[in-house]
């Protein structure tokens, strides 16, 4: 991209002057670093990039990016970003949210942004806990989770964020991990290239309140037996097992032998990506990462904007003349 060369931005250009205030060792640091390293690749000038977040540890993110940014209120970032993106198609708008922010208080906005296919890149930092409020269970915590608010174990079944997003008609759904910088950047790249809503779940370690939540798929001794790396056009396998679609079954199965499925994120039927998303539950035993689904559908921004442009194209006269016509429309009468 010629512009990239012309801009000559580096990761440093995307660091703001604010002191980063996450706990030492928090997974958010690596996500921030990956993002700052990835940004120059976009080839978009900093002023055209906006990060909008809700509330939570993760939602402090915009303060650390030297772009435009808004740290808003709990759960509402997708709604705010929708208004911004729909009215400013020239901007590159990212939403940063947490598992509580996106799936609890803001669940409604998340699903509606996805079904509308607003041109937003939504990054859900999933640490399966409420970090900022000091350790209550979240809508992604495993059932039975013992926390300050659930001393005898949580009673509710967690959401599978990707299944939820797919059920909400998302056109792009992916998952990655805070500690795998290379994978993280590749997913960010794919998300950035997607027209419409891109939903990315990032497994993020909260080393204070939920440390080691994702160790099974991070630790080099266990990782290979549990992590499925989805690659477009490649067979889907985990360790020496294959992911297959048994005849007559609705879902997928991990087994020895058989013909592994070849991954294709562009399959239009969301049932495929949904089946992939169901391979892992809270236990992470067989967890796919990568792009699950990437299909094309006109974005909300595009449709809304076209309606306005079409109406403008059909209009004649200056705005003042048009307004005069509008005010004088209908049954009028004149008093001399």
């Amino acid at each position: 991209m010629a512009e990239t060369v012309a801009l000559k931005l580096t990761a440093k250009d995307f660091k703001s002057d604010q002191e980063v205030r996450w706990c030492p060792g928090c997974g958010d640091y690596s996500i921030l670093a990956a993002m700052q390293r990835f940004m120059p690749e976009l080839g978009i000038p900093r002023e055209k990039i906006v990060f909008v977040s809700g509330i939570g540890c993760s939602s402090r993110f915009p303060y650390y990016m030297n772009t435009y940014g808004m740290h808003s209120i709990h759960g509402r970032a997708p709604a705010i970003a929708t208004g911004l993106s729909a009215s400013r198609p020239d901007l590159n708008v990212w939403v940063v949210t947490g598992d509580g922010d996106a799936l609890s208080i803001g669940g409604n906005h998340l699903i509606h942004a996805l079904r509308r296919n607003v041109n937003l890149k939504i990054l859900l930092f999933n640490n399966r806990i409420y970090g900022l409020t000091k350790g209550q269970y979240s809508p992604t915590s495993e059932i039975g989770k013992i926390t300050k608010s659930t001393p005898t174990g949580s009673a509710d079944t967690p959401f599978n964020p990707l299944s939820l997003a797919l059920g909400a008609e998302a056109t792009f759904v992916a998952r990655t991990i805070d500690s795998d910088a290379k994978h993280l950047q590749s997913v960010l790249r794919a998300a950035a290239e997607h027209e419409g809503s891109a939903f990315v779940e990032i497994y993020q370690n909260c080393n204070i309140f939920n440390d080691g939540a994702f160790d099974l798929i991070k630790d080099s001794t266990t990782r290979d037996a549990h992590l499925i790396r989805l690659e477009q056009g490649e067979p889907i396998t985990v360790g020496n097992l294959n992911v297959v679609h048994p005849e007559g079954s609705f879902g997928l199965k991990v087994q020895e032998g058989g013909t592994p499925l070849i991954h294709d994120a562009t399959v239009d039927d969301p049932a495929y990506a949904f089946a992939l998303s169901r391979l892992s539950g809270s236990d992470l035993s067989t967890t796919p990462i990568g792009v699950f689904r990437s299909v094309k559908r006109p974005s909300y921004d595009e449709i809304v904007r076209k309606q306005v442009l079409d109406a403008k194209a059909q209009a004649t006269g200056t705005p003042e003349e048009m307004l005069d016509g509008l005010l004088n429309a209908g049954d009028t009468w004149t008093i001399l």
């Binding site: 909008v52 808004m70 808003s72 509402r76 709604a79 705010i80 970003a81 929708t82 208004g83 911004l84 993106s85 729909a86 009215s87 400013r88 901007l91 409604n108 906005h109 509606h112």
Partner: peptide, 17 residues
């Protein structure tokens, strides 16, 4: 919008823009 909160949120987002 999907609800009143989203309605004002979107309006505020647009105002920011």
């Amino acid at each position: 919008a999907e609800d009143e909160i989203a309605a004002i949120g979107a309006a505020l987002g647009a105002a920011y823009g």
